[in-house]
Amino acid sequence: MTDTSMHAGEGTVIRKTQRRWGESFIQGWLKACAGISIFTTAAIVILLVVESLGFFQNVSPIEFFFGTRWVPLLEPSSYGVLPLLWGTMLVTVGAAVIAIPTGLASAVYLSEYASDRVRRWAKPLLELLAGIPTVVYGYFALTFVTPMLKVILPDIQVFNALSAAIVVGIMILPTIATLSDNALRAVPVSLRQAAYALGATSYEVTTRVVVPAGLSGIMASFLLAISRAIGETMAVTIAAGQTPNLSLSMLESIQTMTAYIVQVSLGDTPSGGIAYQTLFAVGMVLFAITLIINIISQWILSRFREVYD
């Protein structure tokens, strides 16, 4: 017969701590996976630093950072990184000029004006832009954008900074649009209601309450997109050419830091020489720039989380 009057807890045995082997195994495995990415990052940084130090034993940092000629592969060689930095900057600034207004406008439209139905198909479509392989963007620039530009600007070279900037701009647009949209949608509805209840129009609510409240998230999206543009490789290698150039004109061929790395990596530069070491020095500069930008944007984002509490 069942004892229905049994006291709660009576007859319950709490077992001693047991080793759950399956759990320990999975925990260890997860730890190892996380470890791999940390190890890889650390290894890359160490490699960059060590090889760059080797480079700076042969070339003075002053020549590297302030020299205005980049001729590493031919005699007489010269290792001024400024033309490469300039090339990267030209493409990045051009891309930002295109992508920031367009991306922010798309985000404002998606978050504040689009109906749910429009949003449902427009946002994935926009995100699709981010899924197109960058090499396709490169050929798009070379075979479509440049010929189009030639109609308006007959002086344009086959390889030029402008077409590269345009396609990189298109490429980073979804990053800005999606992240800014998220930032705008994170602004509480109660703030919008407060503004509407004070007799504000939609435009005033958007520009004077929602965008300022989401500003740090928006700024972070700009910085992340810019760091993507700086690191962009394939499209600029194809579209902008291989000519280190300190020219102001975007119609001429230039070379970005990334395109230089591609050029040397693909060539038969013997390992160990100065030319080979330039790879790491340039890579180091590239890494430092994107790292700084990412840190700034993370810092902005973490501030942004505190805004409404």
């Binding site: 509480p188 109660s190 703030l191 209601q193 503004a195 004070l198 007799g199 309450v209 805004v307 409404y308």
Partner: peptide, 19 residues
Amino acid sequence: VEVRRHIGMVFQKPNPFPK
């Protein structure tokens, strides 16, 4: 918009602007 200029509202939860 004009209606809300004449008829104001205070909400359930305080919702000051982050200003």
